[in-house]
């Protein structure tokens, strides 16, 4: 076993271990941090596959942005875990049965039929980033533009669904309060004084 194979098995073991830990730990914050570890080691595996750009993007986008946001959400929301675990035991036997059946069938196919020789090593001056950029803006420009439209739709949908005044909120607008004038609040009423009858 050379050093490269050792590195691969080292990182792969961490990926699998962290992924298992992520779905088994009870604390959601720990789960999120284990997911970060999974992403990080996956990025290391990708870099070993000479896909440096994808590896770096995985760390920057998923670890740097998505998971940090996710941690904020997890810490801010008060998630009731006992309610989420309801029915877990009831569905467990069926779940295990389906999972085992699928895993057996899939591994039978994958182990027996997918044997691919390792691709040739790229030259030392080969840049994965440059190759991706070259192909992304020429051959794949049409899918690239559609992906951009999907992101635009995601923005529109997020804003359309969240930017609204909820009925019944007690939030106050300070600017509106400052702008209040006497005329808006006090009404002078002329009344005859009423004496004792």
């Amino acid at each position: 076993m050379n050093f490269e194979a050792f590195l691969f098995y080292f990182f792969a073991a961490i990926v699998v271990g962290a992924a298992v830990a992520m779905i088994t730990v009870r604390n959601p914050v720990h789960a999120a941090l284990f997911l970060v570890l999974t992403f990080f080691t996956s990025a290391a595996l990708w870099i070993m596959l000479e896909a440096e750009f994808l590896g770096i993007v995985l760390v920057l986008v998923y670890v740097g942005a998505v998971m940090v946001l996710f941690l904020f959400v997890v810490m801010m929301l008060d998630i009731n875990l006992t309610r989420m675990r309801e029915g877990f035991m009831r569905f467990l036997p069926v779940g295990i049965l389906v999972a085992v059946a699928m895993a057996t069938v899939m591994s039978l196919v994958v182990v027996r039929h997918f044997r691919v020789d390792a691709p040739e090593r790229a030259a030392a001056d080969y840049s994965n980033t440059e190759a991706l950029g070259r192909i992304l803006y020429t051959e794949y420009v049409y899918p690239f533009e559609i992906a951009a439209v999907i992101l635009l739709v995601a923005i529109i949908a997020a804003i359309a669904l969240t930017l609204r005044r909820r009925p019944g909120t007690k939030a106050i607008d300070p600017a509106k309060q400052v702008r209040v004038s006497r005329e808006g609040r006090v009404r002078m009423v002329d009344m005859k004084s009423e004496g004792k009858s």
Binding site: P143, I146, V153, A157, A160, L161
Partner: peptide, 26 residues
């Protein structure tokens, strides 16, 4: 005419439909 465009078109449509289903927020 490519798996990639086919999938992206499907996602574009689905994303719009998800948002439209939830459009009546109340």
């Amino acid at each position: 005419y490519s798996f990639l465009t086919l999938y992206l078109g499907l996602e574009l449509l689905s994303l719009c439909l998800y948002a439209m289903v939830a459009f009546n927020r109340d």
